[in-house]
Nucleic acid binder design. Structure first.
Lengths: 97, 97
DNA sequence: AGTATTGACACGTAACGGGTTACAAATTAT
DNA sequence: ATAATTTGTAACCCGTTACGTGTCAATACT
């Protein structure tokens, strides 16, 4: 494992894309075709990046959707690792047939 | 970009893990600590692989959770690409300050 | 025949992404 | 300072989804 919490994709979108372009959340939301609320919650890390949003961001920024989606996947995994599931037993080795 | 639908992680779990070990769905579900229904739906591709399930499978099979989760992410992306979002405009280039 | 396994169904719960509307606070422009 | 814009967030609605328990008919195994 990863020890440090991976960066939230919404943070990257805000800091590396929206801010450098001098776009407002309102303008960026319009370009992405989503509500201002949806984008606001994303960049404020209140919601996760959906695969559909990954596609929208990719189209608007001419980048790869996978690069955005992978950020979220890494974060999801990190979050899951913080509360490892109990009552899981290792699968037994090959049983007789 | 990807033309063929990526393999569902539940299918891999069934074909490459559960069947080779001669485990039943019922037994495997018990080992994973989930209900039989949950595992059945997963291996029959009726539901997606959650990050928590990825962790459970990883623990039970001593493999990497990321390898399982990435299968689902690839599938999610492929599915999303089948209905590309409209009303998305490319972000304008740097505006004046 | 009798037992085990399976997929599918109903039903319920909790979480979540997303939309609209509204408002107070903060920021920016005039 | 005043006015206009921007922003975060709450309230409320909706649809989707993962997961649990229970049940049942069909199939497979012994």
């Amino acid at each position: 494992m990863i020890s440090r919490r991976p960066t939230h994709p919404g943070e990257v979108l805000l800091e590396d894309v929206i801010k450098p372009l001098n776009l407002t959340i309102t303008e960026a939301a319009r370009d992405l075709g989503v509500s201002r609320k949806t984008l606001s919650e994303l960049v404020n890390k209140k919601s996760a990046l959906s695969s559909e949003m990954a596609l929208r961001i990719a189209k608007a920024t001419k980048t790869s959707p996978a690069s955005w989606l992978n950020m979220q996947t890494k974060l999801d995994l990190w979050n899951a690792l913080q509360h490892e599931p109990k009552n899981v037993s290792e699968f037994p080795h090959k049983k007789a047939v």
